[in-house]
Design a protein around this nucleic acid. Structure first.
Length: 140
RNA sequence: UGAGUGGGGGUUGCGGUCGCGUCGUCGCUCUUGCGGCGUCGAGGAAAGUCCGAGCUCCACAGGACAGGGUGGUGGGUAACGCCCACCGGGAGCGAUCCCAGGGAAAGUGCCACAGAAAAGAUACCGCCGUGGGGGCGACCUCGCGGUAAGGGUGAAAUGGUGAGGUAAGAGCUCACCGCGGGGUGGGUGACCACCCUGGCAGGGUAAACCCCACCUGGAGGAAGACCAAACAGGGGCGAAGAGGUGGUCCGCCUCGCGAGCUUCGGCUCAUGCGCCCGGGUAGGUCGUUCGAGGGCCUCGGCGACGGGGCUCCGAGAGGAAUGACCGCACCGGUCCGUUCGCGGUCCGGAACAGAACUCGGCUUACAACCCACUCAUCGC
């Protein structure tokens, strides 16, 4: 597995996203479930060396415009805060019907809270947490 | 000022930080990719998926029927169930709006409630004539006949109004209107105007069946075309050899040359190897964005639209790119102060809604603001 592809800084979510059905199924099978009332999370460690984000926004959240905005905002939060939660996990975010009313700040707060809640639980990702893939491309 | 109709409009402008996608280009890697710079990056409905086309695959001798669709006329268009103009009918003081607007003298069905009767008028009340009975009488009552003028019911009652006529009535007769037939003139046509003629046929309903005229293969972009790993498996052929070393040949080294039967000619079975053929899956490429395209000018046309010229390239994603934040203007609102000029504070910049092959329409949804016309009221 080429950990060399680990994204750095605040850039490129494209590869840091779950896109295929297989990936989603892998997370849903045996993933840790948690989150808040508006944002349900399913988390499962991966062996890529960097975290990935998956979005599952159902029709009950709102119409297409609302769903698109939800996905964009969640991606934005994930992109900005990835440095803080650099543990190599796949996380699927499932907004609930009430989530459309949340502001960007509220979304950010809830997503971070939900992901922090995962760590204390065993499965021992804690020890390799500080490794944070040394940015090979440290800006000159 | 208020109301109505129609149309325009579509999350303000400039700048910055981080981030995403397309295309171009340069550099690194030189295979996916990474980085720099530049460029472009949601809508008028992108929506509903209701019509019409392009395009793709499938089917297809010809004809007829069934099924489906359309329904005043003439134009426009690639085409349409769309658009324009006109005709006819209806609503309104008006601007203007509405019409599924062929056929009910081809047949069938249906017409609730009310009503005597909802379609072969079998007359409920009434009216008129006449016969019988009762009563002094006014009149009452029973029967026969005439009568669609009147009452009442209904969305609708067997043409309307008036006059003559009659026992009472009736297109029974007459005038006008309506209707049917014929003619003349105008119009490409729907149709219109006028004249002659017939006493007059006949309820409504065809988004009920139906009849008539015209149109009409099916499925769709997940259509469809191509490339194709690993793995499993199919068919065919081949030789006893295959691999390594090596520039090549020789040489050398390693592995293999199976099992059963046998009349020693071979036959059968199995495994492995090499080559070839064809099919499938993951995945990928194309389809996929330059088109019946947009803008401006000009000519023809009442108009829809068409001809000509110049000019522009304006999204191409793939669980699906437009986001987050900041500053300054501007606009709206709240509160505070005010020397009524304004200053400050906080909040907001919105409705409906997100391209998914592409066009032409229709329908539905929609905030602020703007324009045109009309009506009502008040003022001049």
């Amino acid at each position: 597995m080429n950990a060399a592809a680990a994204p750095t800084g605040e850039s490129l979510p494209p590869r840091a996203r779950l896109r295929r059905k297989r990936d989603f199924q892998r997370v849903f099978q045996g993933g840790w479930r948690g989150g808040t009332r508006e944002l349900r999370l399913v988390i499962r460690p991966n062996d890529l060396g960097y975290p990935r984000l998956g979005l599952a926004v159902g029709r009950k959240v709102g119409n297409a415009v609302v769903r698109n905005r939800m996905k964009r905002r969640l991606r934005e939060v994930f992109r900005r805060e990835r440095a803080l939660l650099a543990a190599p996990v796949d996380v699927v975010v499932i907004p609930q019907p009430g989530a459309a009313a949340l502001s960007f700040e509220a979304l950010r707060e809830q997503l971070l809270r939900g992901m922090k809640a995962w760590r204390p639980r065993g499965r021992g990702p804690r020890e390799n947490e500080p490794r944070r893939p040394a940015p090979q491309r440290a800006d000159p």
